[in-house]
Computed example of a mutant assay.
Amino acid sequence: MTDGATGPVGLAVASPDEPLGDQPGTGADKSIVGRSPGQLAWRRLKRDRTAWASGIALAFFALIALAAPLIERLYGKGPLDRFTDKLDRNGNPLGYLGGISGEHWLGIQPRLGRDILIQIVYGMRTSLIVALTAALLTIVLGVVIGIVAGYLGGKVDAVLSWLTDLTLAFPFYIFCFAFVPIAVAQRYGPTDQEASWFRPMLLVIVFVLFNWTYSARLVRGQVLTLREREFVEAARASGARVGHVLFKQLLPNLWAPILVTFSLNVPALITAEAALSFLGIGILEPTPDLGRLISDSVTYIRDDPAFTLTGGITLFALVLAFNLFGDSLRDALDPKSDR
């Protein structure tokens, strides 16, 4: 039996006087909004607590680096100011924990008498400028080489792949020990004073020469899978030029791996820059630098361990924040990720 409210099997049916859109499951009570891959990735990233924590930390570090001149003005101390009156006869800071006080929040640098806080602020600025500039130039060069090699193939791909393998074969630090002193000697004499911009620019050039290979290989592999897709064939059939196919058709489909590579390349470059400065061939005096600050602190690790811990923890936190954010970004851009 049936009536006006139920169907043959007891299921509720709509009365002629009831609007169909009010019934559950019809789909008319809410609109279906399509989302792009970028919007989906942004939603996954916003739900990731690690991304939030590391992103806030990176914003904090970037703000400190950008506001270094303002911090210097408010703090009342510059990176080159010396407070030798706060040192004892052996060059060690007076007071507890390396001279920490209301006037010097993180203490005094032994022997030189410089304020450690302002050294860290400007050292962070130096590290971020060098790493971000090198990472940006690296990703541009690597993307161009990778996309050209993957799309054109043949002899062009063979030559560029050979160049990539040749670059990877060079030992990075040994090359730096040989190249940097020669480059400095070619421009400056034994008694000349180096310009403050020369050594950072030299490091950027070295980093770009050695780090483009990873992004180039990644982009080349992606292009090899994309160049036979329908949208590329349609662009060719319509008479599009090679430049249009490379940078208008293929490049927009590579932004996800490019972003991940960039975010993970920055902390690697920060570490490399600090390592070169620690070894004495990176940023030199009087330019503040985290790596050199840690190198200077090793001598006083027994008499002033707080000096070593301050620079080391700062570098560790900066690199860790970049690595965690890069991992979260990779997970957010992965469509198969369940995070």
Rank of each mutant, 00 (worst) to 15 (best):
R187Q: 05
Y214M: 06
V232N: 07
A178M: 12
V206L: 15
N211E: 02
L218T: 01
W162E: 12
R220E: 01
W212I: 01
M201H: 07
L166C: 05
V223L: 04
L166T: 03
R236T: 03
R217I: 00
L168K: 11
A237N: 14
F207P: 00
F179R: 00
A183L: 12
A183E: 04
A183M: 15
I205S: 13
A235S: 09
F172V: 12
A195Q: 06
R227F: 00
F198Y: 15
Q186A: 11
R217K: 14
Y188C: 07
A183T: 13
F172H: 04
F210I: 13
Y188T: 11
L168S: 09
D165M: 08
V204Q: 06
Q222E: 14
F170Y: 10
T191I: 13
L226K: 02
A240E: 11
R229H: 07
V219R: 01
F175D: 10
G189E: 11
P190K: 06
W197A: 12
D192C: 02
P171M: 09
L202Q: 14
F177G: 07
E194F: 09
P200G: 07
A237E: 05
E194V: 07
T164S: 10
R236M: 05
L226N: 01
Y214V: 09
A169W: 11
L163T: 02
E230P: 04
S238I: 10
A178C: 08
N211F: 06
L168Y: 08
R227A: 01
T164M: 14
D192Q: 05
V206I: 15
P171E: 11
W162Q: 10
S238M: 11
F172L: 15
V204L: 06
F170D: 08
Y214A: 11
T213R: 00
E194W: 09
Y173P: 09
V204C: 08
I205L: 15
S238K: 10
Y188L: 10
Y173L: 15
E194I: 05
R241T: 15
V219P: 00
L209T: 09
Q193G: 07
R241Q: 13
N211T: 04
L202D: 06
L226T: 02
D192V: 03
G189M: 04
G221T: 12
I205H: 06
